[in-house]
């Protein structure tokens, strides 16, 4: 049902490296789960709207403006990465 190539593509899109054994196992697991969910095809959903969220819950929005982080929190964050002066140093991503 799912080809090996397709699993490789999905793993790359997910940015997860799989060795051959993992890829084989995940392919089998996915086939079993996708086989199970096929039964949704039996439900008539004509004229039914998807329920992405509940209507009475409204999103909270606020203006996007810069704020200062207190020194203590900043120090805590710095502990997680290499810091350079007041900046966090991370690998370049572009």
């Amino acid at each position: 049902m799912i080809e090996k190539r397709e699993i490789e593509k999905l793993a790359f899109l997910s940015r997860i490296r799989l060795d051959n054994k993992d890829a084989k196992e995940i392919r089998e697991d996915l086939e079993s789960i996708l086989g199970y969910v096929q039964k949704l095809k039996n439900v008539n959903t004509e004229d039914v709207e998807p329920l992405f969220h509940f209507p009475e819950l409204k999103n909270v929005v606020r203006e996007d403006k810069p704020c200062t982080v207190n020194r203590e929190t900043q120090k805590e964050m710095m502990r997680m990465g290499k810091d350079k002066d007041d900046y966090l140093k991370v690998e370049s991503i572009l």
Binding site: A11, S14, R15, I16, E25, L30
Partner: peptide, 22 residues
């Protein structure tokens, strides 16, 4: 990314991420 996430996530997490990507 591939290395980090491939090695960092356990089996169930990897399975669900890949299924969700699908």
């Amino acid at each position: 990314y591939l290395k980090n996430r491939g090695g960092g996530f356990g089996k169930e997490a990897r399975r669900r991420i890949i299924l969700g990507t699908y």
